[in-house]
Nucleic acid binder design. Structure first.
Lengths: 155, 155
DNA sequence: CGCGTAAACAACAACGGTTGCGAACAAGCA
DNA sequence: TGCTTGTTCGCAACCGTTGTTGTTTACGCG
């Protein structure tokens, strides 16, 4: 993630205006190392600027995504995660709490032409699902003898 | 995907009852090779059985997923895809139309312990995003409706 | 073959995440 | 300072999915 100042310059270069709301969002993003949701960015920024609206946060995050400063990830955790790490990397996802951990691997996986079906694709995104240390330490759900055979059980 | 008869047996073996609605869903799934959404299964089944409710389709797809007969995929296309292919495989996803194509690859990607951060994970899921042949043929502007992705800020 | 009961059904409302809309507002520039 | 245009914000809408509820149905049993 670039610094708030660099992002300001980048925004201005696109003819976008700088506002206190955007500055606050830039700051929040710059000091986070994880993969916040719009909601959690909103929570961070609201601490300083209680009047900011969630709508503005979404808008700014989408702008940053469009500019390539953020990557929007859908990791199946129910909401979009915004990834401030620009480098090519992959993810570990905790299926219990939704935590996301970066993984820097130089893996080349080519799509065999025979199976490509005419698709033109880019880099593969690799995701591992599992349990983070804190969730595997503490069995979160009842964890009873029920094999969860009833319908629409999650967890 | 197992045959409707086999699925019927499997359902009964779990103490679940067999209904015309479920039979119709089994038939629809059995004759599809792609990765339908609940909505598209509903569309298929509605042709034969107009009275069926979308709720029932969701319920049955979830039951099948719980039983391991289907795999629920979140590929960032906006809705859950139900994958009738049980074998371990990966996916090509068209970012324009949401089409999904299977890819059978025997790739072993290990998570380096140094980066695992204590996660315990299973097999990697590999996704390539790109354009399917029909979407890359067609110029992007016209009536192609892009699911999510874009937003305001048109340059 | 008819019963009883638990399961499944359909219709509808609710829900969470996200976006469209429109009016009020403020950044940046002359 | 005044103007123009992008921005903000609250609200309602939207979409995919699930909860609720009252009714209907499957199916084992006598």
């Amino acid at each position: 993630m670039r610094s708030p100042d660099e992002l300001t310059t980048a925004f201005r270069a696109q003819g976008l205006k700088m506002t206190p709301q955007r500055q606050a969002i830039f700051r929040a993003l710059h000091q986070t190392t994880d993969h916040p949701t719009a909601e959690s960015v909103y929570a961070m920024v609201s601490a300083d600027m209680p009047s900011i609206s969630l709508r503005t946060v979404y808008q700014t995050l989408n702008d940053l995504t469009t500019m390539g400063e953020l990557v929007a990830l859908d990791l199946g955790t129910g909401s979009t995660r915004f990834d401030p790490t620009a480098d090519d990397h992959h993810h570990l996802v905790c299926v219990a709490c939704g935590a996301v951990h970066d993984l820097f691997l130089d893996v080349q996986v080519a799509v065999p032409a025979a199976q490509a079906a005419g698709f033109s694709v880019g880099r593969p995104e690799i995701t591992w699902r599992g349990m983070c240390p804190s969730c595997s330490d503490r069995p979160p759900a009842p964890q009873t003898e029920q094999p969860a055979q009833r319908e629409e059980t999650n967890a």
